[in-house]
Design a protein around this nucleic acid. Structure first.
Lengths: 159, 159
DNA sequence: TATTGTTATACTCTATAACTATA
DNA sequence: TATAGTTATAGAGTATAACAATA
C-alpha cells in the first residue's frame, strides 16, 4: 500500500486517462464506476456528433419517440423515458420553438396536450438517425458485434 | 415503516415504468439508452443507501482513492476519476469541513496540496464500504455472479 | 512558459413542491 | 379528489476561461 504519493506529472486531457494515475483501490472493478465511465464515453461520442445540430442525447430520444408515437401525451413521453414531467416541458418548448414538433390541445381531455413531429422534425430526425448509425457503427467496430449485443442484453437485465 | 397508506400524489415513481407505455421505436435496444437506464438504477440504489450519510457516489469514490493514495494531489485525484480540477475543489472542501480529510500544502511544491483521510475519514469510509458491499451483493444476487463479472468486463472494454 | 489550485460561470439532467385548469 | 401540464427551484455532475502563486 502506497505510503507516499506517486509523483506523476501530466494533467493531460481527462478523457484519455481515467486510470493509471493512482492506485484505484478496486474502484475500477465496481459496477457504478464502470457504468459512469462507459456512459460518459458513449454520451460524449454521440453528443459530440449531435452538437453541431444543437441536440443532446435526451432530445434525440424524445424526437425518436414522437416519431413512432404521434399524438402521444407529455405524461406518456415522460413515463416512457423516465423523465419527470417538469423536466420535459422545456424540452418540448425547445422542439416547438425550433419548428420540429407541435403541441396541440387534446380535444378529448382539455387538460392534456398531444405531441407530434412536424415535417421538418421528421426530416431532422432522419439526419440524426444517420449520424447515430455512424457512431454506433464505430462502437460496434470497436467492441465487436457479439459483445455489443451481450452488453445491451446485460444492461437490460440490470435495469 | 411504510405499512400505513402512503398517499401518492406524484407521478407514481418513474423508475418502475420506463418502457411499456409507448412504442419505444428501437430506442430500448440502443446502447446509450440502456446505459442511461442502468446507470440511473444503480446510482439510485447506491445513492439511496448513502443518502443518510450525506455522501454521493462521486464523494464515495473520492474517499476510496484518498484512502489508498494518502498524500496524493488534487490534480492526480481529478485525473484518476476523470473529474476536472475546478469541480474537485468543492468536493474536497466538503470533506475537509466535515473533518474527513486533510488538505496540506506540499512542502516540495508550494503550488500543490497533498490530501489524506483523517482517522474519522478512515472510519467513515469503512462504514460506507460495508453499505456498498451490501448493495453490490443485492445486485449480484439479482443478475448472477457470472453476468455481473461479464458486464464489468464489457463495460471496461467499451470505455 | 507551464502547472496547481482556485473562482466564476454555464449547461445538462434530475428532483420536488405547488399552482392552473380541467376531469 | 385526482390528473395534465406548468412554474419555480434546487441539487448533482460536467465543461471552459481566467487568475494568483509557484515552478
Amino acid at each position: 500500500m502506497a505510503t507516499t504519493s506517486v509523483r506523476r506529472r501530466q494533467p493531460a486531457s481527462l478523457e484519455l486517462l481515467g486510470e493509471g494515475v493512482l492506485d484505484m483501490g478496486g474502484l475500477d472493478d465496481k459496477l457504478g464506476f464502470r457504468l459512469r465511465f462507459a456512459e460518459r464515453r458513449i454520451f460524449r461520442e454521440i453528443g459530440d456528433s449531435f452538437q453541431a445540430y444543437g441536440v443532446s442525447p435526451l432530445l434525440y430520444s424524445i424526437l425518436t419517440l414522437l416519431s413512432v408515437n404521434p399524438g402521444c401525451r407529455q405524461a406518456e413521453l415522460g413515463a416512457a423515458l423516465g423523465v419527470h414531467q417538469p423536466n420535459l416541458v422545456e424540452k418540448i418548448d425547445t422542439l416547438v420553438s425550433r419548428g420540429l414538433a407541435l403541441r396541440t390541445p387534446d380535444p378529448d381531455d382539455r387538460r392534456a396536450n398531444t405531441l407530434r413531429l412536424t415535417d421538418a422534425g421528421v426530416e431532422f430526425l432522419a439526419e440524426l438517425d444517420r449520424i447515430d448509425d455512424e457512431v454506433i457503427g464505430r462502437i460496434i467496430e470497436r467492441v465487436g458485434q457479439e459483445d455489443y449485443a451481450t452488453l445491451i442484453e446485460l444492461l437490460r437485465k440490470l435495469a
